[in-house]
Design a protein around this nucleic acid. Structure first.
Length: 817
DNA sequence: ATATACACGGATCCCCTATTTCC
DNA sequence: GGAAATAGGGGATCCGTGTA
């Protein structure tokens, strides 16, 4: 049989001692197809390069005789081949050692302690990764495949008999073809329970949302019935109904929000309790969870996606939302929010509340599905680039993505993969001294007019590519054509001959450029997110090289990249200064300066000139022209504060970096006040109106006219309560919550305010009260610790001492009497 | 468990000295 | 009068959160 096919979910099984990949996907008509395929299992033994032909032959004989009996499985070396390969960019002779089962490679490798063998590699990729590399059946690419139909066949122990697919095919041939349409079929789900702890309460309802499908299943009856609500007898039946509907809708992607950590484990726990099989898998299997602290729930044949995880790795750095709660994320990306509903224990809910609860539950799934649809293009892009299954790509951290991308492209370079570092290696790497980072220019505080900003496009990546930096390209001895840089009082040189890592990064670099262009042409939260996602992937490459867990870790490379970053940043600053401009800002890959008496076209000419002097693919671009910009001193007051500035464009658009306004651990009042003051100063060009506004705010505070919700301070609990050495206010607040039996755990955003207290205790933490606790806000604290620190440095730019102004005003009122 | 370094700034911790309190 | 308790100053450290 011949058909089109797009692989979506990968799994594998053993049959008669061999490994088989089992891939679920669709054909172009939307029929569900499963293909079964085998794949040779092998790894590499890199030989001592001085071996003679005879010695090699003798060695091969020895290897060919290896037979093992591990974990009750008999295994042996099936065959060996000699190949000319590359390892870390250098040509090597290597033996390709084939075994029956991929899982045995590690054991065989550990029996190869002969002196003729220098290194053993390629046994630690994981079967799926190995399979995708070997057979080039890449996720989310289209293929024309042919093979034997296994429907109702007894092959592989009758694999098809309980597999819910339209066709099951034993793959014979596959040819990549051009992209076809693939509408991803997503089904979002969300549960509501009485208790938050996994499995401890009952599941009250489950919502399911897909295209033209909306359902809330519940066993909690109310007299009013919405169309989408379906009642069942009890929790057991609810679980069964859930499975039934998932099977009926038959999605490619079952999507939840924090569902790896909550919904799916909860469902599983309750199913176990009721002794019900949660057979969601296409093969009727139940969800499986990876071990470890971070659970991942896998369903056979259906890709379970916890969209929160993808958002967290790919976007969170660039998001405005203070938390990654569904509500805030939906607001930011969808302009939609959760339905209003105060969750209480079901026993406390009144008859009329239930309808609201159903709607609330349903809407969560609606939002989750929308988020999935919004981010699907990004997940798809990442999957195609990284070439790992969607399940993994949607969960992996950035280092994993970069590494997988490299691993999947080594064959082009005839490269043998490097191994994962051992625990011992990781320990030493972690113990290494930190490499010196980027250069940050100390700004001169002030309010400036007409500013231009330049920044380097993907600076680290373009340096890696242009200067050919990587572990394998690092030279022991410099030659005259090498790229050389001084770092840590040493000279590091990288070969002129292009290495495989720098070459591979080019693709990501180009994708990043493309998406940035797309965003500039059509700005929307999504194009912005996409552009940033690739910016992140691109920027992570440098992080990856310096990451202790990386296969291709190279401390020297990392130090060199950063040394180049410093060099080019400083050089650019100098060149701009020499062209007659005053530089006022510089951080890592960007420079800001005053245009002064020159024109914008002069600036553009300068940019062109600077670019012509840059090596390789390095590129400086115009970030923008700004009408005004504000820089302040540090809190101490002596230096210009780095990483803190505000700019206004001609069209009034404001860009604020680093100020308290953008920090979530300051109360709303301080942030709003500072924000208004900055905006006023930037648009007016002076501080007059801002000062007036500040005085009003201060009066309001003194008169206790400020709404308590604007005084709430939010701080994240970054670790378990017991691990804190310093008992800071938010730790106290968390402890208070615990006492009141409000669940608190690591990662929660703790909210509190500072209240007036009777005792003379002087620590801030003694004034902490939870938002629910009654009390008057502490006027002195909010003035001296929230408002003044947030605005003091800004007014200092104009020579105004805010403390004196406040006190001076007091004197005036005294004189008035 | 799993990208990096630089930076700001609040709050506590900890050590010290000076002052106050207690017997 | 002398010991113990307390206050507060200042640097070190912890901690969270930004920028790039």
């Amino acid at each position: 049989m011949k058909t089109s096919f797009i692989p979506i979910d990968y799994d594998y099984f053993d049959f008669e001692g061999r490994n088989y990949a089992k891939i679920i996907g669709r054909d172009e008509k939307g029929k569900r197809v499963c293909i079964i395929d085998s794949c040779p299992a092998y790894f590499w033994a890199i030989l001592n390069q001085e071996l003679k032909q005879k010695e090699i032959e003798k060695l091969l004989d020895k290897i060919n005789q290896i037979q093992l009996d591990v974990k009750g499985r008999k295994t042996k070396v099936e065959k060996t081949e000699i190949h000319d390969k590359n390892f870390l960019g250098k040509p090597v002779k290597a033996v390709k050692i084939f075994a029956t089962n991929y899982k045995d490679l590690h054991d065989i490798a550990s029996h190869l302690g002969m002196p003729e063998i220098e290194k053993r590699r390629g046994y630690d990729l994981g079967f799926i990764t190995h399979y995708i590399i070997e057979k080039e059946i890449k996720p989310m690419h289209w293929y024309e495949i042919s093979g034997e139909v296994l429907n109702n066949s007894l092959e592989f122990g009758g694999i098809d008999s309980n597999l819910d697919v339209d066709f099951c095919i034993k793959l014979e041939k596959a040819k990549e073809i051009s992209d076809k349409k693939f509408p991803p079929k997503g089904l979002a789900y969300d549960i509501e329970t009485d208790e938050l702890k996994i499995g401890e309460g009952e599941i009250l309802m489950i919502s399911l949302v897909s295209d033209n499908f909306k359902k809330v299943i519940t066993w909690k009856k109310s007299s009013h019935k919405e169309r989408f609500v379906e009642y069942v007898k009890d929790e057991s039946e609810l679980l069964e109904k859930f499975v039934e509907y998932v099977r009926k809708v038959s999605p490619d992607f079952l999507v939840g929000y924090f569902s790896d950590g909550f919904d799916l484990p909860y469902l599983k726990a309750r199913a176990e309790k009721h002794k019900i099989k949660l057979n969601l898998g296409l093969d009727e299997s139940q969800p499986k969870f990876t071990r470890g602290i971070n659970l991942s729930g896998k369903i056979n044949g259906i890709v379970h996606i916890d969209i929160l995880k993808f958002i967290r790795t790919a976007y969170s750095q660039y998001m405005k939302s203070e938390t990654l709660s569904l509500n805030e994320v939906a607001k930011e990306f969808l302009g939609d929010s959760k339905k209003e509903f105060i969750i209480q224990h079901s026993s406390k809910l009144k008859e009329k509340d239930w309808n609201q609860y159903y709607e609330y539950n349903l809407h969560d799934s609606v939002l989750t599905l929308k988020l999935f649809e919004k981010f699907w293009p990004d997940i798809l892009e990442f999957t195609k680039v990284v070439q790992e299954p969607v399940f993994d790509v949607s969960r992996n951290g950035l280092s994993k993505q970069v590494e997988n991308y490299i691993l999947h492209n080594l064959e082009k370079f005839n490269e043998i993969p490097e191994k994962r570092p051992t625990h011992e290696e990781i320990r030493t790497r972690r113990g290494n001294k930190k490499v010196e980072g980027a250069f940050v220019f100390e700004p001169k505080p002030g309010l400036y007019e007409n500013i231009a900003m330049f920044d380097f496009t993907s600076m680290h990546t373009s340096i890696i590519i242009s200067m050919n930096i990587s572990g394998p390209t690092l030279l022991e001895k410099s030659d005259k054509n090498a790229y050389t840089i001084e770092a840590e009082n040493k000279k590091y040189s990288f070969s002129e001959k292009q290495g495989f890592i720098p070459l591979l990064l080019k693709e990501i670099f180009e994708k990043r450029k493309l998406h940035k262009k797309e965003y500039k042409k059509n700005p929307s939260p999504i194009t912005k997110a996409r552009s940033n996602a690739f910016k992140l992937l691109s920027a992570s490459i440098h992080g990856y090289i310096g990451f202790f867990g990386a296969r291709y870790y190279s401390r020297e490379s990392s130090a060199s990249i950063l040394a180049f970053v410093r060099k080019f940043n400083k050089q650019t600053i100098e060149k701009i200064q020499n062209s007659g401009y005053e530089v006022i800002f510089g951080d890592t890959d960007s420079v800001g300066f005053i245009i002064g008496s020159k024109t914008e076209s002069d600036v553009k000419k300068l940019l062109k000139k600077l670019n012509s002097e840059l090596p390789g693919i390095m590129e400086l671009e115009l970030e923008g022209f700004f009408k005004r910009g504000l820089w302040v001193t540090t809190r101490g007051g002596t230096f210009g504060a780095k990483k803190k500035y505000a700019l206004i464009k001609k069209d009034g658009k404001i860009k604020i970096r680093g100020f308290e306004t953008v920090r979530r651990d300051w109360c709303r009042l301080s942030r709003d006040t500072q924000n208004k003051i900055i905006k006023s100063i930037l648009s007016e060009g002076n501080e007059k109106k801002a000062l007036k506004y500040l005085k009003e705010v201060i009066e309001k505070i003194k008169e206790r006219k400020i709404d308590k919700k604007d005084l709430i301070i939010k701080t994240q609990l970054k670790k378990p309560l017991s691990e804190y050495k310093a008992i800071s206010p938010h730790v106290i607040a968390a402890k208070k919550m615990q006492e009141q039996e409000i669940p608190v755990s690591q990662g929660n955003l703790i909210e509190y305010y500072l209240a007036e207290i009777d005792t003379k205790k002087s620590l801030v933490r003694d004034k902490v009260k939870l938002p629910s606790e009654k009390g008057d806000y502490n006027i002195k604290y909010y003035l001296e610790h929230q408002i003044i620190p947030a605005v003091e440095n800004i007014f200092q730019v104009f020579g105004i001492n805010i403390k004196e102004v406040i006190e001076g005003k007091k004197q005036m009122t005294l004189r008035d009497f």
